[in-house]
């Protein structure tokens, strides 16, 4: 059985510099595959490759067995690959509900309808409400996104991805900039939704990573230096060197 998402020998060069070099990984439904590594390890580049925002220099990406060579972000999204961003990338001056509505509508074939009012498609709002409930945003539905706390905005960030009903979720540092309490809450939310997706999680917060991940890949300077069960990987000498300031530059 193939995985929901799989990368084989994925490489990205930026003018000669290999930001990601021959990375191979995979993830299946219900599984959280965490990718960690020091700053500049190429984790965000990896997410950008997997979501179609960057084109790989070499290697393949397979989504549910389909080779997605040449797919941009729009096609990847329609194929079922949702993503969140490290820097919050939502619709700031729209309400949380409207944020979700835009994302939900992308799955319904009504976006080229010009004359019926949006209110004549109650389906959209019903689905948005489900998404908001899953992310505990329902009480904030009518608040503008830019009036929310940072932690709540991060939840909207995930909500936009969820609202597109993806099979694969690529999460680029969902806990970025969060306080301890907000982080715990987000970990809890991710735990609640994990069974429905194949999740690839890039994260710096080690407590969160070890609380969530089934599989752990460690990247340094664009390369995978270790990959396996979290409890095994954390004991690896190379990983400890990378993190505790061995020979490898941060």
């Amino acid at each position: 059985m193939g995985s929901l998402i799989e990368a084989r020998g994925l490489t990205k060069n930026f003018s000669g510099l290999a930001a990601v070099s021959s990375v191979t990984l995979s993830c299946d439904r219900g599984m959280i595959h965490a990718v960690i590594g020091p700053n500049g390890a190429g984790k965000s580049t990896l997410i950008n490759l997997l979501s179609g925002e960057l084109r790989p220099t070499d290697g393949q990406i397979l989504v549910d067995g389909v080779n997605v060579k040449g797919y941009g972000p729009t096609k990847m999204s329609l194929l079922g690959v949702g993503r969140s961003y490290q820097r919050t990338n939502i619709y700031p001056n729209l309400s949380v509900l409207e944020n979700c509505n835009i994302a939900v509508q992308s799955r319904l074939e009504i976006s080229m309808r010009f004359f019926g009012a949006v209110t004549s498609y109650p389906d959209v709002e019903a689905r948005s409400k489900q998404v908001m409930q899953r992310l505990q945003l329902d009480s904030l539905a009518h608040k503008k996104a830019n009036e929310l706390s940072h932690g709540e905005q991060r939840q909207v960030e995930i909500a936009l991805a969820l609202a597109t009903e993806p099979k694969v979720l690529l999460l680029d540092e969902p806990l970025a900039g969060m306080g301890a309490e907000e982080s715990l809450r987000m970990v809890e939310l991710l735990r609640n939704i994990r069974s429905d997706f194949a999740m690839i999680l890039v994260e710096h917060d080690m407590d969160a990573v070890f609380a969530l991940a089934d599989h752990l890949t460690v990247m340094v300077n664009g390369e995978v230096i270790e990959s396996g069960k979290p409890e095994v990987v954390r004991l690896s000498r190379r990983v400890q060197e990378a993190y505790l300031g061995g020979d490898i530059d941060e």
Partner: peptide, 29 residues
């Protein structure tokens, strides 16, 4: 007025506010 209030208009709003994300959630902007 009707175009703005329609599903099509909603996508236009998405493009105006954040085209990058609108692309990423599956719209051919």
């Amino acid at each position: 007025r009707r175009i703005i209030a329609s599903p099509f208009g909603r996508v236009l709003t998405g493009i105006r506010v954040n085209e990058h994300r609108t692309k990423a959630i599956g719209y051919n902007t």
